[in-house]
């Protein structure tokens, strides 16, 4: 495998790790965040500070980065989700959180302000990233196709009816937020040790958009769809060598176009499974009618 292809693959899987989390959060639970880049940033900074300043080994640092992002998500999630804010109020709150976090990163001594943390060791090799990607996907798959996933879907479909089915909205939403933040934190840790430097301005809406676009294009209510979209989105611009901003223009356009023409995305509410591929078209057609594929 050429060095170049390997690089694209690593970056694609790093994105996919965060996308899996966001898929659970937005695709399955129906919440929208404008602040997930902040969780990526928290993961990136936590891992970078641990490896660079404290000489921690890499894999534990990645795990701690995920936990740290998860903890911070509880700080923001517990009050806002407990208050049962309307969905758009919640989104505005995440926007505020993301912005506040960025300003903090620019001003805390340990994050070294706008200069950031340069000279990180490139620990994010293909095998490590791959193992974490598989692990995260495994956990997400089991989560989604369990009673916990069913509760999340119920909340997404109709939160009033979900409550009247005995579901505690707060628990369900917080669980999804926590999981997505842990994924984002892990993704951030890998990203930092792939690019080998981090700065506060790397973690803005560009990142959030890439993730959301993958979830939306891949299909809300699907895990495989967003993963495939994340891999494709990471590969296409590399192949076409388009400038970053045109890429974002396209992502913005894609988001609108999908909402207008095909809101369920490519794989909406469906999964691409090995079984499914084996059994071919017939099996897929049966799943369209509602039976989850990977159960």
């Amino acid at each position: 495998m050429s060095y170049y292809v390997q690089g694209v693959l690593i970056m694609a899987m790093i994105n996919a790790i965060s996308v899996v989390g966001l898929s659970v959060f937005t695709g399955f639970t129906g919440l929208m965040s404008l602040g997930h880049a902040a969780f990526i940033a928290i993961g990136a900074y936590t891992a970078a500070i641990l490896t660079k300043l404290y000489g921690f080994p890499f894999v534990p640092s990645v795990v701690l980065a995920g936990i740290m992002a998860g903890m911070v998500s509880l700080v923001i999630g517990i009050p806002t989700l407990r208050a049962k804010l309307r969905s758009d109020y919640f989104t505005i709150a995440t926007l505020g959180f993301g912005e506040a976090m960025r300003v903090l990163l620019e001003n805390l001594p340990i994050t070294q302000g706008a200069r950031g943390l340069p000279g990180l060791t490139p620990y994010s090799t293909l095998p490590v990233v791959f193992i974490f990607f598989v692990l995260v996907t495994f956990v997400a798959k089991n989560f989604v196709f369990s009673r916990y996933g069913r509760m999340a879907i119920a909340v997404r479909e109709d939160f009033v009816a979900a409550e009247m089915a005995g579901i505690n909205l707060f628990n369900v939403r917080l669980r999804s937020l926590f999981f997505s933040a842990v994924c984002a934190g892990i993704g951030g840790a890998f990203q930092a040790h792939y690019i080998t430097y981090i700065q506060p301005n790397m973690f803005t809406n560009v990142q959030s958009t890439l993730l959301t676009a993958s979830v939306v294009a891949g299909g809300m209510g699907s895990l495989t769809g967003p993963i495939i979209a994340a891999l494709v989105f990471a590969a296409i611009p590399e192949v076409l060598r388009v400038a970053n901003m045109w890429r974002l223009v396209a992502y913005g356009g894609i988001l609108v176009a999908i909402m207008v023409f095909r809101p369920q995305g490519i794989f909406g509410y469906k999964e691409l499974t090995f079984k499914g591929i084996y059994r071919g078209y017939k099996h897929l057609a049966a799943k369209v009618t509602g039976q989850g594929g990977a159960k």
Partner: peptide, 14 residues
């Protein structure tokens, strides 16, 4: 309303 927000976010990025 999730769809509206995504569409709005897309427009803004665009």
């Amino acid at each position: 309303s999730l769809y509206f927000m995504i569409s709005a976010m897309g427009t803004s990025i665009f």
